[in-house]
Design a protein around this nucleic acid. Structure first.
Lengths: 203, 203
DNA sequence: TCGTGTTGTAATCGAATGATTACCAAGCTG
DNA sequence: CAGCTTGGTAATCATTCGATTACAACACGA
């Protein structure tokens, strides 16, 4: 019965499936936050059933922790790519570029932002603080002076905010917002606008 | 029966009660986010019943919008206090000082942060974008060059993040985090640490 | 081919939550 | 004090959600 049009889903190893669910989780958690996301949202985004998501990750809390770990892993991986030889200015520019490139990982920046707002959470809070502290330590260990590391991080938080606000659409309509994007990303404005999630996207 | 120790609650005008609930709402929404906060949480924080909160504000969504409006009102009020005469540097310093002083309004910075992460929300998203755009426009209209306004805003997002993470406790234990606070608030580190909410506080 | 471990789902359950309803009581006004 | 407006609550309802259970289908080795 209509089996001709059925694209029968392939069976995957649990590790492969876990990876797919994790990608979906970063996207959905980023768009709707930890509390605002249901395990069923993620299940649908990953095209599996809700109980299977729970079974593979234990609880929603553990799933969020896994998504946060993966997010930080991708972040440091990007930083590693940028941290080669060169002057301080060059390294910083490459790191900013890599951070913007991470916009192609849907929900990454917003998942970070959400985690950073969960400081009061007994389990997630400590992990989020640890992640943030590791980012700070990474910059300092690279040789960034405190002042410079601080400004770099602040720019990152600013990007996160503009992404979370879904400001990219407004930039093409409101000249003041375009002005803002220009000030924030003098050399990469086009890239940011091209990669930024839009209002109409569910994530 | 034990009425001697009962502090019988006073009857207030609905406007007075609304104001109290709004203050509680900013604190609780800031600590737990829009979705993570229940109307009953706010009711308890304001020492009224849950149905009364709903009756005075209509829906939880409208209550959050009211809290966001109040937050922005307090923010611009603070900016107005700082925007007097003086050199650019002086004005910027006063505005930073006022923004830090707003830490005494429990939950204000985090309510802003949460709103700024709700860009995908059909009702809250537009209001949050509008609020952010108004802040940007305010700075530019004051005469801040784009570059300077951008850096100032980024510092603000950084403060919001550190508050949301509840990093203040860690600053007194981990020297690297203390280093971070020093870099972010060279002249006001003590004030920030004194006013910042702590991990053990419910809000 | 038989069985056994693994991938995956349907059905369901209990707790939590936003909202509604019905009701009560305080205080003002004539 | 009668009556009525306003402030406020208890009880309850429908929905949603994370989690559990029981079961089905596929694959692979003996």
């Amino acid at each position: 019965m209509a089996s001709g049009t059925m694209t029968s889903k392939k069976r995957l190893s649990s590790d492969e499936r876990r990876a797919l669910i994790l990608t979906a989780a970063i996207a959905v958690f980023g768009a709707k936050g930890y509390v605002g996301t249901t395990t069923d949202d993620i299940a649908r985004a990953a095209d599996v059933s809700q109980p299977y998501v729970v079974r593979l990750f234990g609880t929603k809390e553990q799933l969020f922790l896994a998504a946060l770990d993966e997010t930080l892993r991708l972040l440091f991986e990007a930083f590693e790519r940028a941290a080669g030889p060169g002057l301080d200015d060059e390294i910083e520019a490459r790191m900013g570029h890599e951070y913007i490139g991470l916009l192609s990982v849907r929900g990454l920046h917003q998942t970070l932002s959400h985690a950073f707002l969960l400081g009061s959470h007994p389990v997630i809070g400590p992990r989020a603080r640890d992640g943030f502290a590791r980012v700070w330590a990474y910059l300092r260990d690279l040789g960034f002076p405190a002042e410079r590391a601080q400004a770099f991080l602040a720019q990152g938080m600013m990007l996160n905010t503009m992404i979370g606000l879904r400001l990219a659409d407004a930039a093409e309509v409101d000249p003041r917002i375009a002005d803002l994007f220009g000030a924030c990303f003098p050399t990469e404005k086009a890239t940011v606008l091209a990669l930024a999630p839009r209002v109409d996207e569910p994530w």
